[in-house]
Design a protein around this nucleic acid. Structure first.
Length: 1007
RNA sequence: GCGGGAGUCGCCCAGCCUGGUCAACGGCGUAGGGCUUAGGACCCUAUCUUUUAGGAGUUCGUGGGUUCAAAUCCCACCUCCCGCACCA
C-alpha cells in the first residue's frame, strides 16, 4: 500500500489550523485539563530525543480531548541564559567547529549565520525552526499563547514574581564560590569551558606554620594528619612571594597569591624569596610551638595549594618517598642529613597497614610491576622515586582506606582526637584549627587546569553580594512536601527522588551578571537566572493570549495587575486603588483574565525529561507553593520520561548519530515517528530509537490503512454504520449474532477497557501495544472462525476497525483521519474527533459477557490440543473425535470448585468437603479425577474461578458441537469431526479415551 | 559518600505495582516454506531441553524465605547505569 504521507499530513495541518481546533477557551460546561511541557531552549534544531517528551505530552492531550475534556496545551520559548550568548561570541570569533556544525549539522543558511553574532538572531532562528518541527509533528498546540522569555510583558511577569518572592523573605543575599573566568569576568560552567569540563573545586585547609614572623601556610586535604607532621616541603628552584594577606605577612607561591585575590582577600606584594632560601630553616608548628625543618622536594608544585607542603611521611606516600630520596642523595643535597634523622610518626591505625602505612602502600602499588618498567629500579618496592606516577595510586588507596576505616591512634600526639574515626576527626580537626586561628581555607579547582572557551585559565571566585533563592528554608520545604504528597507523579517510582531533592536543596543563586533575560528589579546589574525565570510561567500562558491579541499592553502590567489576576487580590487596598484610579485596563477585561486563569489553573500535568527532576521540576513545585494559594493553584501532576538512545547509544554530535526531527518527518512521516517513539520504551526507560522499528511502524500503519480502504471498497461508504463501536443501543439485538461475533464484541470491549486504563496511567506503550497487537490477534482468530463458516463478517470488522482506529488517533493523528473517513466515520471539525458516537469509545461493564469469552477459550484450547497432538504424532487426520466430560464429573468438578473458593485447597480437605454433600457421593469412586480437577482449578486465576463458578448454564458439548466441526475441518483438513459427551450411549470410542475427559478439558481421539 | 534505577529465553525489550491466563508479549537475528525473472519487500511456520497423543523437565543476576502456587511478595548478597547544582 503506497501512502502519500506528506499530502495527508499537510492536509490535516491545514484543516486543524483553519478550524482553530486546539485553541482552548474557558468553558464551564466541560472539565478542563491543563497540560504543559518544559519549553525548549532555542540554541539548536530539535532532534528525535527532544521529540519524545513533546510527543508523549501531545498524545496525552489528544487522548484527553477524545475523552471530552477541554484541553489547554500551549508552548513558549526559553531565550534566557548564557549558552546562546556564548554561541554568538564564538560566531563572532569565527570558531571553526561551531561554524561547521551550524552549516552542516544544523543546515543553517549562510545569510542567517551572518546575523548570528547577535544572540537574539540565533534564538529567533532556532525558535522558528523548532516551532515548524512541532507543527509538522502534529502537536495540538494553542499557538495563540506563544511567547518568549525576553518579551517585555514576560519580563513584567518575572519582575512581579521575583519581587513577590523577595517580599516573602525567600530571596537572600550571600556569597558563594563559583568557577570563574578572570578574562570574561563571568562564572563558568561545563558549557563555557574548552572540552566541556565542569569545573569542580575542593577546599584545602591552609595550616599556618611560622618562620621569622612570616606565615608559611601549608595546604592539605587531610588536616587530621597534622599530628604526624615531620617537616615542610618547598621547591628549592622556585621563587616564592612575600605578601600581605588581609594585613598578615605570608609567604606563598605566586600562583597561590593570585588565587587568594579571587577569594575575597586583600593581597599586596612586598617582595620575593627563593625556595633555596627557605630550605634549612625551622618552621614553628602552630598548635604545639615545636620546630620542624623545611626541606626541598621535587614533587612540590607551585600551582597546587600554596606551593608549600606539609610532610607526613607515615601517611603520605609522596612525603615518605621524598624523604627517602633526599636521605639517599649521593651528592648530599641540602637537608639530606636532616632527612636521615626524620622518622615517620604514625597517627592513624587501620587493619590493613603497619607502622608506616605510606611505605606499605607504595610497596602494594608498585610490587610486581618493577619488571619491565622504564627507568632505574630503586628500592625493594620498585618505586623509582618521588616522580613515579604510581605514587598517585598508592596515595589514593591509602587515603581511601584510612578515611573510611582508619581510627586516630591512641597516642599523646593526637591529643583529644585519639580514638576518633578518621572521617570524624577530619572535620573536628578542621574546626578546631579554624577556631584557634591556626588555619584558613583555600578553594581550588580540582580537575584543573580548566580553560574557558576564551582560553583563559579558570579560578575559583567567591561571589559576594549574590542573590539566592533560599530553598533551604524548612517551612518552604514542608509546603513543597505537602504539595508533592497530593500530586500524581508518573511513573510513581521517581516520587522518592523528588522528596529527596526537596530535602537536599539549599540556597541557590537566582541571578547572574550576563546573558539574556529579565533584570533584577532592585539591582539592574543582575539578570534573573534562567532556571529561576521558568518556574511559574505556566500561569503566563493565560495572560499571553491577551497580550498577543493586543488587549493588554506590557506597560499596563503592574504589580497590582498580577496581584489580582494571579492571586485574586481584588479587594486589597492597593489593588482597589489601582483599578479604580490608575489603570486604563477595563474592569471586564481584568475579570476575564482572572476568570480564565481560575478556569485553567492549576497545571494538571507537567511533562518533562527525567534530567529536570533534580532542578526545574522541583523548583516548579517549590515556587508554586511559595507564590500561590495552598492547594487551590498548586500543581496536580508531573509526568517524567527517559531519554532517547540511537541504536542503543547516546546521541551526540561527535558520534554523528543525531537525527534532526524535521528530517525524520520528511523521510518517514510524522505518524510513523510518533509511533516509533512511543513504542520503543515505557515512560521512565531510555527509549532506543532505531530504523527497524521505524520501518516496522510504517508498515503497520500502511497495512491498517489498507484494511480500512478495503472495508470501504467492499462495503460502500458505510452510511448508517455505527462508527465508534461499543455499547451503543442501536445495534442489532446481540442474541441473534453468531458465537464468533458475540465473542469478538466482548473481547473488543474488554481490550478497549484495558487500553483506556493504560492511557489513564500514562502507559502509552502498553496502550499502543494493545491497539496494534492485541487487536490484530483478535481479528486473526475471528478471521479463522468466519472463514471456516464461509462468511466474511465485514460488518463486525468495520466496527472493530472503527474502535481501534479511534483509539489510535492520539498516537497517529494524521493517518487515522483518513482511516476513519474510509470507514465512513466523518471527521468532526468541531472537536477533531469522530462523528457517530464521538470521542473515545465507551464501554459499559455489563456489555462484556465473560461466559462468551470462556466458551471461546474452550474452543481455542481444544484446537490447540488437537494441533499439538498432530504435531507430536505427525498424523494426517481423517476423523477427529472430541469427548466432553459427563454430568457426574461436572457435578464433582463444581463441588471441588466450591471447596477451593471456600479456601479448602489440600486433597484431604477437598475430599472431606465433597463427601459432606450426599450429591457428591460419586467422588469417592474417582479420586484420580478429583485430584486432577483440583490441580486444574488451583492453576486458574481468581477471576477465572469465579467466572467458572458463576456460569452454570454453559453446555460444553452443545457449544463445541456447533462451533468446532467446521473450524477443525477447515484448519486440519479432517473429513469428519465429531463431538460426544462421555456418557453418550452412541459414543464411538475405540481406544477408551472418553474417560480422560475433564470439564473444560475434553478428551480427543484422532484417526 | 548521598540519592535513584536496572539485571528476563542468541540480541534488544515487555511482564513485577494487582502472585496463578508464563516456557514467559513484541522486535531483531536464525531455519524452513510461500511470493518474485532475480534482488529486496511482504506473508506463513519454527526457534530452552526432551517426547510419534495433547505430556514431562529445567529457566527470569546469586542465595535464602513466605505461599497450594513466585519472573512477580520479603530478606541478604553480587554486578551495572544515572544525578549530586548555580547549568539549560
Amino acid at each position: 500500500m503506497d501512502v502519500d504521507w506528506g499530502a495527508i499530513e499537510s492536509d490535516c495541518r491545514r484543516r486543524w489550523a483553519d478550524s482553530g481546533l486546539f485553541e482552548a477557551e474557558p468553558d464551564n460546561g466541560r472539565p478542563k485539563r491543563f497540560i504543559t511541557v518544559a519549553y525548549p531552549y532555542p540554541n539548536s534544531p530539535q532532534h528525535i530525543g527532544h521529540g519524545r517528551t513533546y510527543t508523549i505530552a501531545d498524545v496525552h492531550a489528544r487522548f484527553r480531548r477524545l475523552r471530552g475534556e477541554n484541553v489547554l496545551f500551549p508552548m513558549g520559548f526559553h531565550y534566557t541564559g548564557t549558552p546562546i550568548l556564548g554561541m554568538a561570541k564564538r560566531v563572532a570569533a569565527g570558531d571553526k567547529e561551531l561554524m561547521e556544525n551550524l552549516r552542516v549539522l544544523y543546515g543553517v543558511p549562510e545569510d542567517e549565520i551572518a546575523g548570528f553574532t547577535d544572540p537574539i538572531n540565533i534564538a529567533r532562528y532556532f525558535h522558528q525552526e523548532i516551532k515548524s518541527g512541532m507543527i509538522e509533528m502534529g502537536y495540538s498546540i494553542d499557538w495563540r499563547r506563544e511567547f518568549t522569555t525576553i518579551d517585555p510583558a514576560y519580563s513584567k511577569f518575572i519582575e512581579w514574581q521575583i519581587n513577590t518572592l523577595r517580599e516573602k523573605g525567600l530571596i537572600i543575599r550571600g556569597s558563594h564560590p563559583v568557577g570563574w573566568c578572570p578574562e570574561d569576568q563571568n562564572p563558568v560552567s561545563q558549557h563555557d569551558t574548552l572540552g566541556d569540563v565542569e569545573p569542580e573545586f575542593t577546599e584545602y585547609v591552609m595550616i599556618k606554620f611560622l618562620i621569622d614572623g612570616y606565615i608559611v601556610p601549608a595546604a592539605t586535604l587531610r588536616p587530621e594528619t597534622l599530628f604526624g607532621v615531620t617537616n615542610l616541603w618547598v621547591d628549592q628552584n622556585l621563587t616564592y612571594v612575600r605578601v600581605l594577606v588581609d594585613g598578615q605577612k605570608w609567604i606563598v607561591s605566586r600562583e597561590c597569591a593570585r588565587k587568594l585575590e579571587f577569594l575575597e582577600r586583600t593581597v599586596s606584594y612586598e617582595g620575593e624569596i627563593t625556595g633555596a632560601d627557605l630550605v634549612g630553616r625551622a618552621a614553628i608548628m602552630p598548635h604545639t610551638g615545636g620546630e620542624i625543618p623545611i626541606l626541598p622536594a621535587e614533587f612540590v608544585q607551585s600551582s597546587t595549594g600554596t606551593g608549600i607542603v606539609m610532610s607526613v611521611p607515615a601517611h603520605a606516600p609522596y612525603d615518605w618517598q621524598a624523604l627517602r630520596d633526599l636521605a639517599d642523595s649521593i651528592d648530599g643535597r641540602p637537608g639530606s642529613a636532616a632527612a636521615s634523622d626524620i622518622h615517620p610518626i604514625c597517627i592513624i591505625e587501620t587493619n590493613t597497614y603497619g607502622r608506616v602505612p605510606a611505605e606499605d602502600a607504595i610497596v602494594a602499588a608498585t610490587a610486581g610491576q618493577a619488571e619491565g618498567e622504564e627507568g632505574e629500579v630503586k628500592g625493594e618496592g620498585g618505586c623509582t622515586g618521588q616522580n613515579d606516577p604510581r605514587l598517585e595510586d598508592a596515595t589514593k588507596q591509602l587515603y581511601a582506606k584510612e578515611f573510611y576505616e582508619g581510627v586516630m591512634a591512641d597516642d599523646v600526639a593526637t591529643g583529644k582526637f585519639a580514638g576518633l574515626a578518621v572521617r570524624q576527626a577530619k572535620e573536628d580537626v578542621r574546626a578546631w584549627l579554624a577556631d584557634e586561628g591556626h588555619a584558613e581555607t583555600l578553594l581550588e579547582i580540582l580537575d584543573g587546569p580548566v580553560r574557558c572557551r576564551c582560553g583563559a585559565e579558570c579560578v575559583v571566585k567567591i561571589l559576594s553580594d549574590q542573590w539566592f533563592l533560599n530553598y533551604g528554608d524548612s517551612r518552604w520545604k514542608e509546603s513543597a512536601h505537602r504539595c508533592l504528597d497530593d500530586m500524581s507523579i508518573l511513573p510513581n517510582e521517581i516520587r522518592q527522588e523528588f522528596n529527596h531533592v526537596i530535602d537536599w536543596l539549599h540556597e541557590r543563586a537566582c541571578a547572574r551578571q550576563h546573558g539574556l533575560g529579565t533584570k533584577l528589579p532592585w539591582d539592574q546589574d543582575w539578570i534573573v537566572e534562567s532556571l529561576s525565570d521558568s518556574v511559574i510561567y505556566m500561569a503566563y500562558y493565560v495572560i499571553a493570549k491577551f497580550v498577543n491579541d493586543g488587549t493588554i499592553r506590557p506597560e499596563q502590567m503592574t504589580r497590582e495587575f498580577f496581584d489580582y489576576v494571579l492571586l485574586g487580590m481584588w479587594d486589597d487596598p492597593d489593588v482597589k486603588k489601582w483599578r479604580e484610579t490608575t489603570t486604563d485596563i477595563p474592569q471586564d477585561v481584568l475579570r476575564a483574565v482572572r476568570d480564565e486563569f481560575c478556569y485553567f489553573y492549576p497545571v494538571d500535568y507537567r511533562h518533562s525529561g527525567r534530567d529536570l527532576v533534580p532542578n526545574h521540576l522541583t523548583f516548579f513545585i517549590l515556587n508554586h507553593v511559595a507564590m500561590f494559594a495552598e492547594r487551590l493553584h498548586w500543581p496536580r501532576g508531573i509526568v517524567v520520561n527517559g531519554s532517547v538512545l540511537m541504536d542503543g547509544s547516546k546521541m551526540s554530535k561527535s558520534m554523528g548519530n543525531i537525527i534532526p526531527l524535521r528530517q525524520a518527518i520528511r523521510e518517514y512521516g510524522a505518524d510513523t515517528i510518533r509511533l516509533a517513539i512511543i513504542t520503543s520504551a515505557e515512560l521512565l526507560q531510555d527509549a532506543d530509537f532505531n530504523m527497524e522499528s521505524v520501518h516496522g511502524m510504517r508498515a503497520k500503519l500502511e497495512a491498517l490503512y489498507g484494511e480500512c480502504i478495503a472495508l470501504r471498497d467492499t462495503y460502500g461508504d458505510g452510511a448508517g454504520g455505527d462508527g465508534t463501536a461499543g455499547g451503543g443501543g442501536e445495534e442489532p439485538a446481540e442474541t441473534v449474532l453468531p458465537a464468533e461475533d458475540l465473542w469478538l464484541l466482548s473481547k473488543m470491549r474488554q481490550t478497549t477497557l484495558r487500553v483506556g486504563e493504560s492511557m489513564e496511567r500514562m502507559r502509552m506503550r502498553e496502550a499502543l501495544h494493545l491497539i496494534l497487537f492485541e487487536f490484530e490477534s483478535m481479528i486473526g482468530w475471528y478471521t479463522k472462525r468466519t472463514a471456516a463458516k464461509g462468511s466474511d463478517g465485514e460488518g463486525m470488522r468495520r466496527r472493530v476497525a472503527a474502535t481501534r482506529v479511534t483509539m489510535l488517533q492520539p498516537f497517529a493523528p494524521h493517518i487515522t483521519e483518513s482511516m476513519l473517513a474510509a470507514l465512513g466515520c466523518e471527521s468532526d471539525s468541531e472537536v477533531g474527533v469522530v462523528v457517530g458516537g464521538g470521542g473515545w469509545p465507551d464501554v459499559a461493564d455489563d456489555s462484556i459477557d465473560t461466559s462468551v469469552l470462556q466458551a471461546e477459550d474452550l474452543l481455542r484450547d481444544t484446537m490447540d490440543d488437537i494441533a499439538s497432538i498432530l504435531k507430536v504424532t505427525g498424523i494426517k487426520p481423517n476423523r477427529i473425535m472430541v469427548y466432553v466430560a459427563g454430568p457426574q464429573k461436572m457435578t464433582v468438578y463444581r463441588g471441588v470448585l466450591n471447596c477451593v473458593l471456600e479456601e479448602k485447597r489440600s486433597m484431604g480437605d477437598v475430599m472431606k468437603g465433597l463427601l459432606a454433600d450426599p450429591a457428591m457421593s460419586g467422588a469417592k469412586r474417582m479420586p484420580d479425577f478429583v485430584q486432577k480437577a483440583l490441580r486444574d482449578i488451583l492453576s486458574y486465576t481468581l477471576d477465572t474461578r469465579n467466572a467458572r463458578s458463576r456460569s452454570t448454564k454453559f453446555d460444553e458439548a452443545e457449544f463445541l458441537a456447533s462451533e468446532l466441526p467446521e473450524l477443525a475441518s477447515a484448519e486440519f483438513g479432517a473429513a469428519e469431526v465429531a463431538v460426544y459427551t462421555e456418557s453418550d450411549p452412541e459414543i464411538y470410542d475405540p481406544k477408551g479415551k472418553a474417560r480422560h475427559a475433564r470439564p473444560f478439558k475434553p478428551a480427543i481421539l484422532i484417526e
